[in-house]
Design a protein around this nucleic acid. Structure first.
Lengths: 205, 205, 205, 205
DNA sequence: GATGAATGAGCCTTCATTCAT
DNA sequence: GATGAATGAAGGCTCATTCAT
């Protein structure tokens, strides 16, 4: 309450950045110590081990991702706008990272943990399911409202959007350029417009 | 002399697997020792440090990726077939990994090294450029032969194919299922058919 | 807090002996571990690396040298007595080493570090300057009090005393005998008596 | 015979420099490998271990010291000149080291080996005895020829000359200046003139 | 006579963790 | 709730040495 954030939160915040930047094995407790200005004991007072920190840091980063989505989608009103904004949110990851280290922390963790940290892998998997669900809901809403075609495979479309935009993020990160996210953004938006949107009016006229 | 080369290759082969599986920081020299049945000194007789191993391991994996592409594309004759086979090659990464640990080692390295290993990051970037170039050539060949539309943006299309398929690979890995690569495969192939291929017959009639 | 200081001091004390005995490269952290009954981590809690230990160990030994000087000179009252006692202090280095390993730690470090450890070399140089200054002060005091001749070159005389006595210490050490320090002692004392002391009586008569 | 020097000699020459520069523990076989452009095996063909190299390197350096003495004394004819030249030889160690690393290799080894390498310590002791004997002979020759006083203690004088000049060398090395050897040189020469030379003529007249 | 390949022990340093204070 | 002090294991790397070729 003192400074608005508890020590525990500070540890999570800082290590969330570190884990997203360097990965689980690339980030040591000394790094966390330095970042939090705490000593070993101070950290272990709040967490029983590094894994626990990593797991909570993931949760924190996961939350940040969805905060970003909600924030970017806030002003959108129609399902189409909302879906466009989902794309914009992904683009924003490149301009203004949700967390230091860049990219999408969910995807970053997925790659980092797949073969080395079952617990984090599981979290990452659930995280991606979360993304799928989130986008899925936007799609379903649009279908319900008659904006999107009724024959679209929601899971597939959501999956395609995610893989394209996430893949683009990685490529942009390693390339130090926004080029690929921009390409992905345009492509996905075109795809939405051309393949998801009901062409009722146009056809009818 | 023969033996030295063999040992060196064994070190590279084994550590290529280890680095692809656990990442640079997640794979220790002890791991390499165990995998190669060598002692530390034996390893350091062939490489001056861990970085050198990692770099050569990347080169090895990079080569494996393109060997796979060439192998899968071997029987394809037309540019369209070739492009389809590029997709199939990516799908094959999920069925039968080019290297232990799964996924695409170029992409894996990209994520692993982005914030922690400039040299590997550069290699990964060049690796992705290699992928872009490779697919770009297939596209250009198709355009030249009149199979693909002349107005396609080669770089963009190549980029889109890669980001989609690579993204799908990561999602499949963390999900322990081929689901997403299959979706990506179908999608990309449809895209090729519907958006890249010249619609000569239709036009002709 | 008390305990930490104690441990830190123990590390310095013990490694001061080891460095003086075996030199920087001849003394390993394992040696320090054994001497301090600490594990590596325990040592690195107090020092960031071997160099830092070596530097502080030098400071400690430097201090011991001057403590010895002060102790031996404590009872001396006149400048002449004091200068004699400086010689005695050097002799005492052979009988009862200021620090395990024997000789003069300042000189030992000088030789050990000259070509391999710039930081320690600098410390050793400053250490020798300290010796020169210390003896220089005794000489100047004697001059001021009219005991020593006014025309003596203080720096030269101090330098000559040091080089002779230090050289003798090394020779005695390698020879396992006090022979050379005794020779040096007698010589330097004669030199003081015959060349530094004002011959007032003779002149007066 | 090929290049005038055998491989064995090259190993000794190079490692003699290295040992004099860095000391026994500060010089590794890798350093010797690099300096000799040989591989491990190539070195171990000629020496059974590092100690053997170090011992022979010492002998080589010892020889170089006496070669220098002989060279500098070559033109001297009278015992007095010869003794002066002994001093000059020592001074030359500072201007033009007998062996890379500087100083007097005998003294350097003495300090390096005293507490850590009995075999080398013994060699260094014998080396210093050699210096004592060498200077002793010059003194005895001078006494025999009536140039030096008959009552001088040959061993003591030789010892004093050595400790002073060697001590000065160390101080000059750590100080990166010739200052102290010059002081020592002047002092020892004065001492020779004033205390060793027979004052027959002066007294007689 | 030289190299190449390998080893076991040791180097300095950092790791994650514990626990008394 | 935080620190200080300690640990055992492991990190990457170099050591001196051996021996088949």
């Amino acid at each position: 309450m003192k400074k608005g954030v508890t020590t525990r939160e500070r540890i999570i915040t800082k290590s969330a950045e570190l884990f997203n930047t360097y990965g689980y094995h690339g980030c040591s407790l000394s790094d966390i110590m330095e970042a939090t200005k705490l000593k070993k004991g101070g950290i272990y007072n709040h967490f029983k081990n590094k894994d626990e920190i990593a797991v909570e840091a993931f949760d924190y980063n996961y939350d940040r991702v969805f905060r970003r989505f909600r924030k970017v989608l806030a002003e959108a009103t129609t399902p189409l706008e909302k879906l466009y904004k989902v794309v914009d949110a992904y683009v924003s990851f490149a301009d203004d990272p949700v967390v230091k280290g860049g990219g999408c922390p969910i995807f970053n963790t997925a790659m980092d943990a797949t073969n080395s940290h079952p617990q984090l892998k599981r979290k990452a998997r659930l995280g991606i399911e979360g993304l799928l669900t989130y986008i899925g809901i936007k799609l379903k809403d649009g279908i319900k409202e008659g904006v999107f075609r009724t024959d679209i495979n929601v899971d597939e479309v959501a999956g395609l959007m995610i893989m394209t935009l996430e893949g683009a993020l990685v490529m942009s990160q390693v390339n130090d350029s926004k080029e690929f996210v921009d390409i992905a953004s345009r492509f996905v938006k075109d795809y939405i417009k051309n393949n998801l949107v009901q062409e009722t009016e146009i056809t009818n006229t």
